[in-house]
């Protein structure tokens, strides 16, 4: 049906990424704990969470966009592998989003909300991220509720496109209009000279790349496995 009907990744590429991810993330953990950071009140050493909490959301963003891309391709070609790719990318997006939200809860609880006992503080970004995770959770509920495989693929793909459109609004646009614990209210933190100290960039950017690489490894593993399972189901003898 389509030329892309094999989920196998060139082994050399896979091993290269694997090695790079291992080295980069090891370096990030070491430098993340030992590197020097600006001394700020309230934040103190917990500013190091930037290296671990924020890449979760970058990974979610990358995963949802990848998932939406494969949903579009599925609608164009009807290639079942595209549907599998979209599902696995969305699943990992959900996992990384959950890790992001739980790490954010712990960070806020023991940094800005000491003495209040508040685990959930209704920060706009926190609440909107929770809404986003519910939207992506519904993707799987929708998928599992449809028996026929082609119908399921098509409806899930269309829903996935709706879900990805909400992502920038829920994670960026709406939270930045409201007073928030998160940076971005005064303009894009990406171009800000004050939101991220220069010394921290050297750990933060590799961390984002490392976690994106880790996502890719997990994603290709899961796609290969799901594809295998899908093929076995088709075998009349099995």
């Amino acid at each position: 049906m389509s030329t892309s009907s094999s989920p196998v990744v060139p082994p050399r590429v896979y091993r290269l990424v694997q090695g790079a991810v291992f080295l980069v993330l090891t370096g990030v953990i070491v430098a993340g704990f030992l590197g020097s950071i600006p001394q700020l009140d309230i934040l103190e050493q917990s500013a190091r969470n930037l290296y671990f909490h924020v890449p979760m959301w970058f990974t979610l963003m990358g995963a949802t966009i990848l998932s939406a891309y494969h949903s579009v391709r599925y609608l164009q070609t009807g290639d079942r592998l595209r549907d599998i790719r979209a599902r696995e990318a969305a699943w990992l997006a959900l996992i990384f989003g959950l890790l992001g939200i739980v790490t954010g809860m712990v960070w806020a609880r023991f940094t800005w909300y000491v003495g209040t006992g508040k685990w959930w503080n209704f920060d706009p970004k926190q609440s909107m991220a929770a809404v986003l995770l519910l939207i992506y959770g519904a993707y799987f509920v929708l998928r599992d509720s449809i028996e026929d495989r082609d119908t399921r693929g098509r409806i899930a793909a269309v829903y996935n496109l709706f879900a990805v459109v909400t992502m920038p609004f829920l994670l960026y646009i709406i939270p930045r209009q409201l007073p928030s614990l998160h940076p971005g209210g005064e303009g894009s933190p990406a171009f800000s000279q004050t939101d991220l100290a220069p010394a921290m960039r050297w750990v933060f950017y590799p961390s984002v790349l490392g976690f994106l690489g880790l996502f890719w490894l997990l994603y290709t593993q899961r796609v290969r496995l799901a594809w295998l399972r899908d093929q076995l189901r088709d075998e009349p003898d099995l």
Binding site: F33, S46, R48, N49, F52, T103, V106, F110, T111
Partner: peptide, 8 residues
């Protein structure tokens, strides 16, 4: 607050 980072 280094243990917050460890927990994360």
């Amino acid at each position: 607050k280094i243990y917050v980072v460890l927990a994360v």
